[in-house]
Design a binder for these strands. Structure first.
Length: 570
RNA sequence: GCCCUGGUAGCUCAGUUGGAUAGAGCAUCCGCCUCCUAAGCGGAGGGUCGCAGGUUCGACUCCUGCUCAGGGCGCCA
């Protein structure tokens, strides 16, 4: 059950009948403990609308309620403070024990494509991919938890001019007798070597350009080389996903090149739309009044370049078309950097005009900010030394290993390694997810790999504390009921019941940090409870054990929705 | 020049359809391990919410102007 919904409905109904028209109760979680558990803020606005005294209206409203579950009081200019009865909280908690979804109400199933991660296969994954990958994976997990039919779409870059120099370099190295798998072991170095050669060696550059043409014309030898490279690169990215505990698999890849055959069809279909596709300076473009470039000139969406080539606008249109027509998606979410805002707006606009997006289908861009270096400059993506994602993960695991070895030296090394993996990876993911998606952030090892305060290890640690209690409790089955006595028990109980509200507001704007925040608060309240309320010292610890169990279930579930795992001890 | 983001404590960031005294973490300082894991808990200091107007009973939140920072703006992705 969603308590906020329940209260909001109650107050909205009551207020609407008093005001004579639809009037929202505006129920929120109370911001201060002295204001109770929830507060209804709708009275002031309603009173103004019907020109009456807000406090009187509030009084009138609460007299219409017959609350078995909560008590109310009017406060300030016309707030209504809601105090849930302890018995109500306890009975809801007892119900929750049987609920696999922990109070979350499943939604009506729709098909949702989530486009995320999308590394460029020419290179190794670097910190720039952190955001899309982590955020996208969390969104996917949350949607699936709610029972949605989710399709992961890893729109990897595997086509284009840059592959010319890579293939040329591959060819050259293999002629030198170098083993290809050794060569490609470090994709990053390989890419840099190839692009350096492209810049410095005119002969090589010429060969490379030739390879681009051959590749596009479907030359078998070229395609074979390309395929080898792509396979190797995908192996690299899968390795990263596996280490990073990302749910993407090879099957989720639908690469840019997969749309090659669709590109002429897109041109043809756009051409059939009256007046949509126009030629400008030799390129096939779509113009909309809403898009203006420099000097107020109309800005084209270039679908086909003057040399006949297809820019990524075309591929993205083909992908949009595929997602609605073949996959039959109700919703498509693009977890793509904010700098693509204009591009995606154009994609959506053209796709809409072309009929690739119907009115009942929603396309939405979920932008995120850039990862910056400590000096505020951005990470390069074309060449230059980026921080490799795999290195970040390894460093995180190493630091976590050192820490767990210091804190808990008695654990076996294999166990410490397992813990280090879970804690290190969790820390990296949480550092990313707990921030607002849209703003840029500065990549800093120490901030990202911190294990204190509002971090994943804090949440994981709260979980292990609970597990530790159960290890010592040696109870088989918990028989009995939850009874709330101490103030912090009530606070913890209510927090547990607010899990559905956290999930709901997380999905309002697909902001994982809302869920992070909730779990952090839950852990915080639990830690207070842990200090103040001994469990095993009681003659009958059942109620507190049950509270602990529910807390651990919500923590584990919530973390797993973020893609973070838990351990029994750390 | 135009468009999009953002500016909140020394640092990193929360702040949910406008609500009561703007909150965390890190860092600093003070307390707490004969007691279920101290990766923890309790407490202290630290703010003209970029600036100026406006709307409102009420503005960090909405509107306008200004300012600063970043991004984007015809054949790279």
């Amino acid at each position: 059950m969603n308590i906020k919904h329940f209260l909001d409905q109650t107050f909205t109904e009551s207020l609407s009948s008093l005001a004579g028209s639809d009037t929202p109760g505006i129920v929120k979680q109370a911001q201060r403990v002295e204001f109770g558990h929830y507060q209804a803020n709708g009275v002031m606005g309603a009173a103004k609308k019907i020109k009456t005294n807000p406090r009187e209206l509030a009084q009138q409203l609460i007299s219409t309620l017959d609350p078995e579950t909560f008590t109310t009081e009017v406060a300030g200019p016309g707030f209504i403070n809601v105090h849930l009865r302890t018995s109500f909280i306890a009975s809801e908690l007892n119900k929750l024990r049987e609920d696999a979804l922990l109070g979350v109400v499943p939604v009506e199933q729709t098909k949702i494509v989530v486009d995320y991660s999308a590394p460029n296969l020419a290179k190794e994954m670097h910190v720039g991919h952190l955001r899309s990958t982590t955020i996208g994976d969390a969104i996917v997990r949350i949607l699936e938890f709610l029972g949605q039919d989710v399709i992961r779409a890893n729109h990897v870059g595997d086509w284009g001019a840059q592959f010319g120099s890579l293939l040329a370099y591959m060819d050259r190295q293999s002629q030198k007798g170098e083993s290809l798998s050794t060569e490609l072991k470090d994709l990053e170095k390989f890419y840099q070597a190839a692009s350096a050669l492209f810049k410095s060696d005119e002969e090589f550059a010429k060969t490379a350009r030739g390879y681009v043409v051959h590749l596009q014309n479907g030359d078998p030898k070229c395609l074979e080389l390309w395929q080898q490279f792509i396979d190797e690169s995908i192996r690299h990215s899968q390795e990263v996903y596996e280490k990073f505990d990302i749910t993407l698999t090879r099957d989720d890849i639908r690469a840019e090149s997969a749309y090659n055959d669709d590109l002429p069809i897109v041109i043809q279909e756009l051409g059939e739309m009256q007046g949509l596709l126009v030629e400008s300076e030799g390129a096939k473009c779509v113009f909309f009044d809403e898009f203006k470039g420099k000097d107020d000139k109309p800005l084209p969406a270039i679908i086909q370049k003057s040399d006949g080539g297809y820019p990524y606008m075309a591929t993205d249109l083909a992908a949009a078309r595929y997602r609605t027509r073949v996959l039959n998606a109700d919703k498509v979410l693009y977890v793509v950097g904010g700098e693509q805002l204009l591009h995606l707006r154009q994609v959506f606009a053209v796709a809409g005009a072309a009929g690739y997006i119907q009115d009942n289908q929603e396309f939405r861009h979920l932008p995120f900010g850039m990862v910056l270096k400590a000096d505020g400059s951005r990470f390069k993506t074309r060449d230059g030394a980026d921080v490799k994602l795999i290195d970040v993960l390894d460093e995180a695991i190493n630091r976590a290993f050192a820490l767990v070895s210091e804190k808990n030296p008695s654990l076996a090394e294999s166990e410490r390694q397992e813990i280090a993996k879970v804690v290190g990876i969790g820390a990296v993911k949480y550092a990313e997810l707990s921030k607002n998606r849209t703003t840029d952030y500065i990549f800093d090892w120490d901030t990202m790999l911190s294990f204190e305060g509002n971090t994943a290890p804090y949440l994981q640690y709260a979980y292990t504390r609970i597990r530790s209690i159960f290890r010592r409790a040696s109870v088989e089955a918990l028989e009995g009921e939850i009874e709330l006595v101490e103030e912090v028990e009530i606070r913890l109980g209510l927090k547990i019941l607010q899990f559905p509200e956290a999930i709901e507001s997380t999905l309002e704007d697909y902001q994982a940090n809302v869920l992070c925040n909730y779990l952090y608060e839950l852990s915080g309240v639990f830690n207070t409870f842990y200090e103040q309320c001994p469990v095993l010292a009681l003659d009958n610890p059942t109620s507190r054990l049950l509270i602990c169990e529910l807390t651990s279930r919500v923590l584990k579930q919530g973390l797993s929705l973020l893609g973070i795992t838990t351990v029994e001890q750390m």
